[in-house]
Design a protein around this nucleic acid. Structure first.
Length: 236
DNA sequence: CGAGTTTGACCAGCGC
DNA sequence: GCGCTGGTCAAACTCG
């Protein structure tokens, strides 16, 4: 496991490709002025991809890099979008934020600060949703999770990230000819979701958006020697 | 027969 | 308030 992890790591850094069971996926940086990713997505670094999909590489160092970068580069409230291209050894390709989805940023901050998420009512206030409104929201809407997205050049829609996913919906979104698919992690008590769609301008590109953090190890990494408590700090 | 997928309906948020 | 849109549900269906 350890030696394999190191090999994967260098592949990401030098070739911008993700090795998976289905072959190599190219990681394509978002141009800074591109409208993608969708609102609320903190566009991803090569490192954070492995944080989302630990089976693709070692999670720990990568996840930590993503969190610190996101907070350090956090745009001001009036700056809905900022871009950071290339810097720091290709760490953060681009970064965007919307007012609507500020909850995602707050949670990233909380993670860094070591706070508990959703532990008390104070969190409801800084998430911008009143307690009253929260009560009115249906259960499926009230929990907001951090989201991360990246795009890959691939023939297959669903990138094998080591987790088991169950499709729960598909939708044709406006101005796109390709449907968006919705997946949920099949693990009990794990609420991680992902959306998969093809880029309208370039159907070879697959946009994958992850929402939430896994509370378990990847299904194909059961032999991993890391303890659950160690992993839980870094899995997304 | 169980697990996973498909797909139309429903619902909430948002902009006008 | 209304219509549009994205996200989710859940029954029907498919597959191994």
């Amino acid at each position: 496991m350890m030696s394999t992890t190191n090999v994967n790591h260098s592949l990401f850094e030098e070739q911008d490709q993700i090795p998976t069971q289905m072959g190599l996926f190219n990681i394509i940086p978002f141009p800074p002025n591109q409208t993608y990713p969708p609102l609320g997505c903190q566009t991803v670094t090569l490192k954070s991809i492995s944080a989302i999909a630990p089976s693709l590489s070692s999670a720990a160092n990568f996840s930590e890099t993503l969190l610190s970068t996101a907070v350090n580069q956090r745009p001001r409230e009036e700056d809905l979008t900022s871009s950071l291209v290339g810097g720091g050894g290709g760490q953060l390709l681009s970064l965007s934020r919307s007012r609507v989805n500020s909850w995602a940023w707050e949670e990233v901050s909380d993670c860094l600060m070591g706070k508990r998420i959703g532990g008390d009512d104070n969190h409801h206030h800084h998430l911008g949703v009143s307690a009253m409104k929260m009560k009115k929201m249906k259960a499926r809407r009230k929990v907001r999770e951090p989201r991360f997205c990246f795009k890959t050049m691939s023939d297959v829609d669903v990138l094998d990230d080591g987790y088991k996913w169950r499709k729960y919906g598909q939708k044709v979104v406006k101005n796109t000819q390709h449907p968006r698919s919705y997946y949920r992690c099949t693990q009990d008590n794990c609420r991680v979701k992902k959306r998969v769609e093809r880029l309208a301008e370039d159907p070879r590109m697959v946009i994958t958006t992850y929402e939430g953090r896994h509370v378990h190890s990847p299904s194909n990494e059961l032999e991993d020697s890391q303890t659950p408590s160690e992993l839980s700090n870094f899995l997304w």
